[in-house]
């Protein structure tokens, strides 16, 4: 049975250089490539702040989330392709308004790119403006989708009317639901855009965190854009 001092961080460990955690590892070659800890001076300082200083995990997490959402739509795509191959399929005419919404969402990706560019140039006002414009375009897109729905309903095309209409309502609704998440993300960016830090360390930290948040929302927003173009093509241009 071996008992170790190990958790006892800080000074005590330094006085007891036994095995275990006590080592700060500075200057020792570990031969491994784990990413966290160890670059800070001994004594335990700094480790827990690293999370805020290098928030890569927002980006990684967002890519992983995108992968899983993509799987959801891939599953539905395969169901759609499978179903369309079976008899009894009637094609639905694309509501013209969808062309408008497609244009709007593509434009929103450009405005988001402009917002990011402004942020990189440190132009806070332009950043706020472009994020705001993107947000409005996102809302406009949802509005267009809603009106397109209303138009179809006015023609008597409902969820259960035909396989194609079922898939149309389902895919557009799921996409709109996910896009609403993106709008929440944009609103968060807009709310946080006014926040100014009091110089020095803190300002740097706020900047890094904002950069990570913008990246994460950006990954999601561009994905939503691309996903819509894909769904539009699948629903009305494919076959």
């Amino acid at each position: 049975m071996v008992t170790m001092v190990t958790t006892k961080a800080g000074e005590r460990v330094a006085e007891r250089p036994a095995r275990g955690l006590g080592r700060d590892g500075a200057g020792k070659r570990t031969g491994g490539n784990g990413s966290r800890g160890g670059q800070f001076p001994p004594g335990g300082g700094g480790d827990s702040q690293r999370r805020d200083e290098t928030p890569h995990h927002y980006r990684i997490g967002m890519w992983i989330a995108v992968a899983s959402i993509l799987m959801l739509f891939m599953a539905l795509t395969s169901a759609y392709v499978f179903r369309a191959a079976v008899s009894g399929w009637q094609d639905l005419q694309a509501p013209p308004l969808l062309w408008v919404s497609t244009g709007v969402i593509i434009a929103s990706s450009f405005t988001f790119a402009l917002a990011r560019k402004s942020l990189r140039r440190d132009d806070g006002a332009a950043y706020r403006r472009w994020i705001g414009v993107t947000l409005l375009l996102g809302l406009a897109f949802l509005g267009c989708q809603f009106l397109a729905w209303r138009g179809l309903i006015a023609q008597g095309v409902y969820l259960a009317s035909s396989p194609h209409s079922s898939f149309f309502y389902l895919l557009t609704a799921l996409h709109a639901l996910h896009l609403a998440g993106g709008i929440a993300g944009l609103s968060y960016l807009l709310l946080r855009a006014g926040r100014v830090a009091r110089g020095g360390e803190e300002e740097r930290a706020v900047k890094v965190r904002r950069g990570a948040a913008v990246d994460a929302v950006g990954i999601y927003w561009h994905f939503m854009d691309g996903l819509w173009v894909y769904l539009f093509a699948l629903l009305f241009l494919w076959r």
Binding site: T7, A9, L21, D24, T30, G32, R36, G38, D47
Partner: peptide, 9 residues
Amino acid sequence: FGGKLPTVY
């Protein structure tokens, strides 16, 4: 880890 991340060798 009690405030101090370990190093692995």
